[in-house]
Write a protein that binds this DNA or RNA. Structure first.
Lengths: 110, 110
DNA sequence: TTATTACATTGCAATATTACGATTAAACTT
DNA sequence: AAGTTTAATCGTAATATTGCAATGTAATAA
């Protein structure tokens, strides 16, 4: 089917998987890393930087924006993108809580 | 197309996206959280616990196992699963490095 | 006004993912 | 041996994702 039955999972589980899904493509990872690297807004050079077609990059940016991880601002004919700091921190809290569960309690039974 | 062009990204970017992809479904998040919660092996009750059909759970377990995040051990007619501690730690290192990039340097230009 | 530039949107083809019924496989039980 | 239990695998339908050419849109430049 290809349909995640969100109603059978907790809000937290759905939230984690939504964040993870957006990181589940190397192009989006690459975009985010580039935004971090330059420490400011990117106005348009992501297409040449990454090497996918312009509509493809635009689509990936849209998904990152919809989840709130980046911001976009129109500057004349171009658009400037940067990390949405507050939302990134929120996401980090959620993901860290999931990833950083206590391993010391785990019995090594297998 | 639906094909991630892995060759145009760095190994690190591909690694991050592979880990993220496996967390990109609430059923797999749920399985992992359950394994953490009971602090030992799960032998078979994941199907009743989660509420998806047995082949579906089996498929999700397979993906988690292929990435090395869980271990499975045959115990008679059933199979016991638990978190693969070492690999989980490795994954955590990779993901933390990506998620925990320095936000203080980011100019708020948007 | 007529380009031009930069980006978003649309439409579509290719591929991937998800879910599960049916079946198979392996170990145990009687 | 025959039946039971548990989980993997196969096959397939439904849906989602990815990528890009073509097109649309909005601001600027000539």
């Amino acid at each position: 089917m290809g349909l995640a039955k969100t109603e059978m999972f907790t809000d937290q589980q759905n939230e984690i998987s939504l964040y993870a899904k957006v990181f589940g493509h190397p192009a989006r990872v690459s975009i985010l890393q580039h935004l971090f690297k330059i420490n400011s807004c990117v106005c348009g050079d992501l297409v040449t930087e990454i090497g996918l077609a312009q509509p493809t990059i635009s689509q990936h940016l849209k998904e990152l924006k919809q989840l709130g991880l980046i911001k976009g601002n129109v500057e004349g004919t171009s658009v400037c993108y940067c990390i949405h700091k507050e939302n990134w921190t929120t996401m980090k809290t959620v993901m860290f809580k999931f990833l950083d569960q206590d391993l010391t309690k785990q019995q090594d039974c297998c």
